[in-house]
C-alpha cells in the first residue's frame, strides 16, 4: 500500500482494568476498500473497531495510548467534537438494534440530530437511503410502523440505511451477518461490495469464507495483536506467519 491510508493506527495499546486487550496495533486502512479484521473470538477485533469511533469512551477503567489518524486528525487526542467524528462513521453491529421508533424515525434520526428540520428534505433522504439498501419497496407502505416489527434481515438493512443517512465516509461493521439468515447475509455482503465505491469499509468477522468473499485488505488478529496484514489475494494465497497458516487451514478459530 503506497497510497495514503484513510485511517492510520499507530502503536495503539488498550487495557481495561489493567488487562491488555490491544497490544501495539499498527494498521493502515486503505480508502474505498473493504478491510476485514479477521481472527478468532476474543482476539480484540471488536474492541479495535469500537476504538475507531471512540465508543470505548463508554467503558470504565479503560486506558488507551497510541494514535488513530483520520483526515489528519488524531481522534484519540482531538479536542474537536466527538459526535462530529462519529458521524463520519456508520456503525453496523452484530445484531440489528433498531431505535425504539418507526422505520422512518430510524433513518431520519441522525439527520434530525444533525439539525435537518425540513420535512421534504427528510422524506427525500429517507427514501433515498432505504432504496440504497433495497428496503424501500418492502417498507414504503408502512414507514411509520415500529421498526421492531421488521424481520431481522430487514432490520439490519434498516440499520445500514440509518448509518448511511448521516453521510459518513467510513462504515464500521461488527460481524454484521452473524445473526442473519444466509440470504440476508448475502445481500449485506453484496451491498458492501457496491458501497466501497463511495465508502471505506472496516468489517469484523471470524468467518473465513466471508473474509475471502469480500476482503480487499486483511488484518489478522490473535490475542490482542496483529499477526499479519496485507492485500487479500496475497494474504490468502501466501501467508507469511505460521499462526496465519494454521488459522487458514482451520487449525483453530
Amino acid at each position: 500500500m503506497n497510497e495514503t491510508p484513510k485511517i492510520l493506527i499507530s502503536n495503539l495499546n488498550l487495557s481495561i482494568d489493567k488487562q491488555d486487550i490491544l497490544k501495539n496495533i499498527n494498521v493502515k486502512i486503505p480508502e474505498n476498500k473493504i478491510t476485514v479484521l479477521l481472527g478468532p473470538s476474543g482476539c480484540g477485533k471488536t474492541t479495535l473497531l469500537k476504538t475507531l469511533n471512540r465508543l470505548t469512551d463508554l467503558y470504565e477503567n479503560v486506558k488507551i495510548n497510541g494514535s488513530i489518524i483520520l483526515d489528519n486528525e488524531d481522534i484519540l487526542h482531538t479536542k474537536s467534537d466527538i459526535t462530529k467524528i462519529r458521524q463520519k462513521m456508520g456503525l453496523l453491529s452484530q445484531r440489528p438494534y433498531p431505535l425504539p421508533m418507526s422505520i422512518y424515525g430510524n433513518v431520519s434520526y441522525g439527520l434530525k440530530i444533525k439539525g435537518v428540520k425540513k420535512k421534504k428534505m427528510l422524506d427525500e433522504k429517507v427514501e433515498h437511503y432505504l432504496k440504497a439498501v433495497n428496503l424501500w419497496e418492502e417498507v414504503r407502505e408502512r414507514l411509520h410502523h415500529p421498526a421492531s416489527a421488521l424481520s431481522i434481515g430487514q432490520q439490519q438493512r434498516l440499520c445500514l440505511a440509518r448509518g448511511l443517512a448521516v453521510d459518513p465516509e467510513i462504515i464500521l461493521a461488527d460481524e454484521p451477518t452473524s445473526a442473519l439468515d444466509p440470504l440476508s447475509s448475502q445481500s449485506i455482503e453484496e451491498m458492501f461490495t457496491i458501497l466501497k465505491k463511495d465508502y471505506t469499509l472496516v468489517v469484523v468477522t471470524h468467518i473465513l469464507r466471508q473474509a475471502k468473499r469480500i476482503a480487499d485488505y486483511v488484518v489478522f488478529m490473535y490475542l490482542g495483536e496483529v499477526v499479519e496484514q496485507g492485500p487479500a489475494d496475497e494474504f490468502f494465497s501466501s501467508p507469511k506467519m505460521d499462526r496465519t497458516k494454521a488459522y487458514l487451514k482451520g487449525a483453530f478459530n
Partner: peptide
C-alpha cells in the same frame, strides 16, 4: 448496543 447505535449516529 442501543446507546452505541445512537451515539454512532452523532447523538
Amino acid at each position: 448496543e442501543l446507546s452505541e447505535a445512537s451515539l454512532s449516529l452523532g447523538a
